[in-house]
Amino acid sequence: MTTLLSVKGLKKSFGGVTATDDVDLDVIKGELHAIIGPNGAGKTTLISQLSGAVKPDAGVIMLNGANITHKPAHTRARLGITRSFQITSLVMDMSVLDNVALAVQATDGHSFKFLKPARKIGHIRDKALAMLAEVGLAERAEDPTRNLSHGEHRQMELAIALASEAELMLLDEPMAGLGPEESATMVAYLKSLKGKRTILLIEHDMDAVFALADRISVLVYGKVIATGLPDDIRSNDAVRHAYLGEE
């Protein structure tokens, strides 16, 4: 068991709101680690600090033993962290394929290449198409992204996270806004990823979390109040009290 990501003493406040309150967190290589917690607990803020989109006030973030606390977001991506967004974040004006191809392109050396048409670079296109096929979107490849449904956008987010070949995938509520059927597909899909990638999953749907997670951390008011195996979390009194809604 090697630790891929290690967070110590992470703190972040926005004005008077403490969104991240002295968080310690270890993510082990290969695990699917879920983070649960009520709305406003600071889950998205935590992910944003891990991906580099938000700067922490204090604390240390280590990836594979290297301190990345002060590395910019684009560098972290190159070091192997990718994220999906709770609120769909795609380039709506570009085609579905272009969106994914851009993620593949990022793994293919630098992009200060000015003359050769990007859409004619076979290995990038092929790989992007393969990723789309994997999430079931191959037929939509040439469509403008804005024409796709919300559910398809969520699948695209996943295809992009996959295409980036990142070692660590930070997934911020990938099921948000999906119907029961689409959610089930997504769960099955995430299950098939288990063991292949290290995943830090934020999710509201408890059934999904308990079906998928190797370990769970519970975040309440910016604090990690418990970390453990799903069964331990289910029976943890503090968690039941604070989050699962039982007295």
Partner: peptide, 10 residues
């Protein structure tokens, strides 16, 4: 189209 997304890609 989406700077945050592009940065996140690396």
């Amino acid at each position: 189209g989406n700077n945050d997304r592009t940065v996140t890609l690396g």
